[in-house]
C-alpha cells in the first residue's frame, strides 16, 4: 500500500501533468546550461592536464659518461618524491628520434661522421609538477649531478602554463558559482509556480488540522522528483549536444559520471529546498 505522502505526490503529478512538466522543463534548462559549462570545464581540464603531462626536465649528459654513473643518476633521480619516471635516451636513440621527427635529417643521417646528439635523461614529474617552483627544484637537482652537462625544461613556457591553469581555476569558480546561483533561482521559481497553483490544498490542509510536517512531505517529494527528472533531462540534452559536437571535435571527452550523478542530485536537492521554502510561505498564510 502507498503511503499518503507518496499517494498525494503522485496524485498531484497526475492532476497537473502540464505544470509539473513545465517545472521539470525549466529545471532541465537550468541544469542543461550547467551541464554545458561542466563539459567545457572538464575538457579544459583534460587539455591542460595533457599539456602538463608532457612537461619534463631534460638533463643532457657528458659524451663520456659511462653506464655506471648513468645508472646511479637515474636511480638517484627516481628516488625523489617529486619525480614519477626517469627515461634514459642514448645518443643513438636521440638520433633515431630526430630522424623520425625531422625528415630532412633522415637524408643527412648516413653521411654523419659523428652523432651530434647528446645522451640525455628525461625526467617526468609527478602529477601537478607543472608548478614552476617544483620544476626548478628538480632541474637544480639534476644539474648537480656530475655527468649532467646541461638542463632544459622551457621555463618561460611552464610559467605561462601555470598562469593559465590558475586563471582557468578562478574563472571556473566564478562562472560556476554564477551558474549555480542562476540555476538555483530558476529551479526555485519553477517549483514555486507549481506550488502556488496548489496553495488551495495547503490552505485546506491547514484549515482542517493537518500537521505541518504532513503537509510538507508530499510537496518535498514532488519537488525532489521534479528536480531529478529535470536533472535527468538536462543530462540527456547535454549528451546530445556532446554527441553533435564530438563529430567535429574528436578530442572532446564526456564529463565524468560523478559529475552527472552530482548534477542530478543537485536538481533533486534544489527542487526539495525550493519546495520547502515555498510551502513554508503558504503555511504562514492560514
Amino acid at each position: 500500500m502507498q503511503s499518503p505522502t507518496l499517494r498525494e505526490a503522485l496524485a498531484a503529478l497526475r492532476r497537473a501533468p502540464l505544470l509539473t512538466g513545465l517545472s521539470a522543463g525549466m529545471v532541465a534548462l537550468a541544469l542543461f546550461v550547467a551541464g554545458l559549462f561542466g563539459t567545457v570545464t572538464h575538457n579544459l581540464q583534460v587539455a591542460l592536464q595533457s599539456v602538463e603531462d608532457r612537461v619534463a626536465v631534460v638533463a643532457y649528459l657528458d659524451d663520456g659518461a659511462g653506464p655506471a654513473p648513468i645508472d646511479r643518476a637515474v636511480a638517484d633521480l627516481e628516488a625523489r618524491d617529486d619525480v614519477r619516471e626517469v627515461r634514459y635516451v642514448s645518443q643513438d636513440r636521440a638520433l633515431e628520434i630526430a630522424r623520425a621527427e625531422l625528415p630532412e635529417l633522415a637524408e643527412l643521417g648516413a653521411g654523419l661522421a659523428e652523432n651530434p646528439f647528446p645522451a640525455s635523461l628525461e625526467i617526468v614529474l609527478q602529477d601537478g609538477g607543472a608548478d614552476p617552483d617544483a620544476i626548478a627544484v628538480v632541474a637544480q637537482a639534476a644539474a648537480a649531478i656530475p655527468i649532467v652537462e646541461d638542463v632544459q625544461y622551457g621555463q618561460e613556457w611552464v610559467d605561462r602554463l601555470h598562469a593559465l591553469r590558475r586563471l582557468t581555476g578562478v574563472a571556473v569558480m566564478v562562472i560556476g558559482a554564477a551558474f549555480a546561483v542562476v540555476g538555483a533561482l530558476i529551479i526555485g521559481t519553477a517549483i514555486r509556480i507549481a506550488i502556488f497553483a496548489r496553495r488551495d490544498e495547503i490552505y485546506i490542509m491547514r484549515l482542517v488540522g493537518a500537521k505541518d510536517a504532513f503537509i510538507r512531505r508530499p510537496f518535498l517529494l514532488e519537488g525532489a522528483f521534479t528536480g531529478v527528472v529535470g536533472g535527468a533531462a538536462a543530462t540527456g540534452l547535454t549528451w546530445l549536444t556532446y554527441q553533435t559536437l564530438h563529430r567535429f571535435l574528436e578530442d572532446l571527452s564526456w564529463i565524468p559520471s560523478t559529475w552527472v550523478v552530482g548534477g542530478i542530485a543537485a536538481g533533486g536537492f534544489f527542487g526539495m529546498l525550493a519546495s520547502a521554502v515555498a510551502v513554508r510561505r503558504h503555511l504562514r498564510e492560514v
Binding site: 499518503p4 492532476r15 488551495d200 485546506i204 493537518a210 504532513f214
Partner: peptide, 20 residues
C-alpha cells in the same frame, strides 16, 4: 473552498486523510 477536480467523496476523504 472545495478542491476542484475532485469528487465530493475525495474532498471529504482528503480532510480525513490529512488529519491522520
Amino acid at each position: 473552498r472545495l478542491l476542484p477536480g475532485r469528487t465530493a467523496m475525495e474532498n471529504v476523504g482528503f480532510a480525513l486523510e490529512v488529519t491522520g
